[in-house]
């Protein structure tokens, strides 16, 4: 039992959270192993942010069990906070203070001081490519740089568990890749456990395991590869003049059951080119465009929920 607890960084069991009559989390269970990068993927309103707040010790659960680093946040919040790093979606830096002043302030809150604090702060800034920015005020930094300072701040007290809410919001793709690579290095070199929420596919793809949240429930939990294997082969998306009519036509003529999601018809097939040929030969006049490819985690989400991850976003 003891060994099992020691290897688990975070654990929730039948976790529930109500806001009045609305149930934001309707019984979620999962375990995050030490040293794991664990992603929680879900659209807005899936309960992701509520779950993040509970994992960050800022919101009590209304049912179920939570253990962070083996401790109960309802009774031992302060002991957890000493060992927990949190990165919020909104910038938590003081724009009027310099980068180093922000870090120093945060370190003092954790009881760090003097040379040990300054040394740690400068080393972290160096590792994140921010050495030359230490004495600039945060208000002069770009969004991407501020995000990195935010990470440095959370890492300052050497947390064992790092919880991040949509960490790459507002970053350009290059900065995003750099950020994820840094998380990976933290895990490898310092054994930090990383728990992040995201609605970005590429971020989810880089996690060891991904939990998919929908309407307050965990609808899937696995490695990105295993999740994608649930989709039968390639994914074909057909943009039709009249999706409903084409759907009926495919059913009758080809014996296929395409899903209609956001006005697009979606089919899974082991070999997409064959299916595309089949569809084009039978319905050339009905089709505006066809695309196909290997399944993404979004396809998994669609398969599980019948909806897109981000409504109105690019397919």
């Amino acid at each position: 039992m003891r060994a099992a607890t020691a290897s688990v960084a975070a654990e929730v069991e039948d976790l529930r959270r109500r806001y009045g009559a609305r149930e934001a989390l309707a019984g979620v269970s999962f375990r995050v192993a030490r040293g794991e990068i664990f992603g929680l993927l879900g659209p807005n309103g899936s309960g992701k942010t509520t779950l993040f707040k509970i994992l960050a010790t800022l919101l009590p659960a209304t049912g179920g069990r939570v253990r962070l680093l083996g401790l109960d946040p309802a009774r031992e919040a302060r002991a957890i906070r000493r060992r927990l790093g949190v990165v919020f979606q909104h910038p938590g830096l003081d724009p009027k203070l310099t980068v180093l002043e922000n870090l120093r302030h945060h370190g003092h809150l954790f009881g760090m001081r003097g040379r040990a604090l300054a040394g740690r702060a400068l080393a972290l800034l160096g590792g994140l490519g921010l050495d030359d920015r230490a004495h600039e005020r945060v208000e002069t930094l770009s969004g991407g740089l501020a995000r990195r300072v935010e990470l440095a701040k959370a890492l300052l007290p050497r947390p064992e568990l790092l919880v991040l809410d949509e960490p790459s919001t507002g970053l350009d793709p290059g900065a995003r890749r750099g950020f994820v690579a840094h998380l990976d290095r933290l895990r490898r070199e310092d054994g930090v456990t990383v728990l992040l929420t995201t609605h970005l596919l590429e971020e989810a793809e880089r996690c060891d395991r991904v939990g998919i949240l929908d309407q307050g429930r965990l609808v899937a939990l696995d490695t990105p590869g295993a999740l994608k294997e649930r989709v039968g082969g390639d994914v074909v998306v057909v943009h039709a003049r009249d999706p409903e009519a084409l759907r009926a036509g495919m059913r009758n003529k080809l014996g296929r059951e395409p899903a209609l999601v956001d006005g697009l018809l979606r089919l899974e097939h082991p070999r997409a080119p064959e299916l595309v040929r089949e569809v084009m030969e039978a319905f050339e006049d009905e089709v505006i465009a066809v695309s196909f490819g290997k399944p993404t985690i979004e396809d998994v989400f669609i398969r599980l929920t019948g909806r897109r991850l981000r409504e109105g976003g690019p397919a």
């Binding site: 800022l58 906070r81 949190v86 919020f88 809150l109 009881g111």
Partner: peptide
């Protein structure tokens, strides 16, 4: 509102 105090709240201060 800006989130600065959230960062303070998750520190072991109380």
């Amino acid at each position: 509102r800006t989130g600065f105090l959230q960062g303070v709240l998750v520190a072991p201060v109380g």
